[in-house]
């Protein structure tokens, strides 16, 4: 099976994101005073071959080992099967 996987990597609650803080300041400066906070996340798109049984386990492993740093980051993912036409 071929899968398109989207992995979302964000900051753990309580970990200050310096880029998010800078963008918050900037948004305030250009008039968006209602902005409370900004957090800059990353999205990683992975296209992969895998069995239906193992795809989720593999994605979780990839996140834990490399794509995210669990010390400071949380991750979530969406797995979508590519249907050949």
């Amino acid at each position: 099976m071929t899968y398109n996987v989207k992995v979302y990597i964000s900051w753990k609650a309580g970990v200050l994101d310096p880029q998010g803080a800078a963008v918050t300041d900037s948004l305030h400066k250009i008039g968006y005073s209602g902005v409370e906070s900004v957090s800059i996340s990353r999205m990683v798109e992975v296209k992969m071959e895998a069995d239906r049984d193992s795809v989720e386990r593999q994605v979780t492993e990839m996140c834990e080992k490399l794509l995210a740093n669990p010390v400071i980051e949380d991750y979530s993912y969406e797995i979508e099967e590519v249907v050949s036409s």
């Binding site: 200050l16 800078a22 740093n69």
Partner: peptide
């Protein structure tokens, strides 16, 4: 740090 040979992690410098 990434190897977990030491605890913790690095972020961008506070002042960017």
């Amino acid at each position: 740090l990434e190897s977990r040979m030491l605890p913790g992690a690095m972020r961008r410098n506070k002042n960017l």
